[in-house]
């Protein structure tokens, strides 16, 4: 199976291992297998596969995981630039 790789060294994902309690939710919610739990601590395996969906950070009980979450969509950025507002995903809410 072919795997997709996007730009490297851009993700805002960060993990503070000291705050991590090893609950494993980040590993469960990540759609790209970025986290791995061993010895009751999470670690980042392949950070460049992160798509910044924000599931890990929102579900982390101790805020050990942080990320600037958003949609990786060019149309959303264009919408944001044109309106001077936030990058907003518009496909599903308007025709």
């Amino acid at each position: 199976m072919t795997t997709h790789r996007y730009l490297e060294d851009v993700t805002t994902l960060a993990l503070d291992t000291d705050k991590c309690t090893g609950c494993g939710l980040c590993e469960a919610v990540c759609p790209h297998g970025v986290f791995e739990i061993s010895n009751k601590k999470a670690s980042l395996t392949d950070k460049d596969t992160c798509m910044e969906c924000g599931a890990c950070a929102l579900n982390c009980p101790t805020k050990a995981v942080t990320v600037n979450a958003g949609v990786g969509c060019a149309a959303a950025f264009i919408y944001g630039w044109l309106t001077g507002g936030e990058a907003k995903c518009g496909c599903s809410t308007s025709a």
Partner: peptide
């Protein structure tokens, strides 16, 4: 990019 399952906003 908006339709894919792997592009991050930072990358886009």
């Amino acid at each position: 990019t908006g339709s894919t399952t792997y592009t991050s906003p930072s990358g886009v």
